[in-house]
Design a protein around this nucleic acid. Structure first.
Lengths: 160, 160
DNA sequence: CATTTCTTGACAGTATACTGATAATCAGCA
DNA sequence: TGCTGATTATCAGTATACTGTCAAGAAATG
């Protein structure tokens, strides 16, 4: 019988666990309280001011039902504002606040450090190859998840 | 600013999402209702009859508080039994049932298929390299997670 | 304009994962 | 033996992720 540790899915889960733990540790040490998911959302909104939640979900490959809670918490922390869209009354426009911008900039070194720590076992060349293989595997499987990545074409309101 | 898609942590999350979705799809198509986490636990118990929950957690790198719920659900499905240990009244001995054994065997082809599907974008050589890099990165980061892998020394009651 | 269809956002329910706390028990030691 | 510290399992609380469902609104169509 095949050992669990020969299963790519199992290894993926373990690596993700480590990645999240490292992220938390580095970010907390820097004095911030943001999860990896919240950081990715905040960062994506900062680069695409005014997008709605579905577009955000596509940008970072989150499920649309997950976005609601993530945005809730970011709004509660004062890092985002969520306003009804004027063009489409179903949609909510997401904008990063001044405080959110400061948090994003302040947290960046910790996030960069986390990426290094979680791959500290690999050489520089191995890191490159690892990322390449991850991207390739993800590209081939993108549509198999309920939350596929969806790049915006060419109309996103570019921020700052 | 660095794009989210250049972050290994973000890529890890995405690959894990795909891996879980593929697992669910393949297993459901085969007529079973087991999550990846439940499968790994069931499989580990099948190979180590009578282990307690902490040992199980170490074997598959789960948090000890997560194990409780996973075992609960497997017991509820009739695939496991959880009995007080005679040697240590704090501990619960986990044993796979006949039905659990049948489920484990019946589900194996679907699990194998899932591993192939989630890596369908990679060549055979790339799959090998990907797994090697995953294992290497995980080994270096193992202790950074609250749920590190802990192999049992040499006394586990080998099953079947 | 009226109707059908799609889309956006939200909710209930389930299943990981984690933090931190606690009860019960065991093991080592004065 | 009695005390102290470690260990096993559990629980409360929080945060992803997903299934499935629903209401409100937009878009397409007759």
């Amino acid at each position: 019988m095949r050992d669990n540790n020969d299963m790519p899915g199992h290894l993926a889960r373990r690596f993700q666990q480590i990645a999240v733990a490292v992220f938390h540790a580095e970010v907390e040490a820097a004095g911030y309280d943001l999860t990896p998911v919240q950081y990715a959302a905040l960062s994506a909104i900062g680069m695409n001011q005014g997008i709605d939640q579905i577009t955000l979900a596509g940008l970072i490959a989150y499920d649309r039902t997950t976005i609601t809670g993530v945005v809730d918490r970011l709004v509660q922390k004062g890092l985002l504002v969520r306003n009804p869209s004027s063009r489409d009354r179903r949609a909510r426009e997401l904008r990063i606040t001044e405080e959110g911008m400061r948090a994003l900039q302040g947290i960046t070194p910790a996030v960069e450090a986390a990426q290094r720590v979680m791959l500290r076992g690999l050489t520089k060349e191995e890191v490159e190859e690892f990322m390449r293989l991850l991207r390739k595997a993800i590209a081939a499987g993108n549509e198999l998840s309920r939350a596929p990545l969806k790049q915006i074409s060419a109309e996103g309101t570019k921020g700052s």
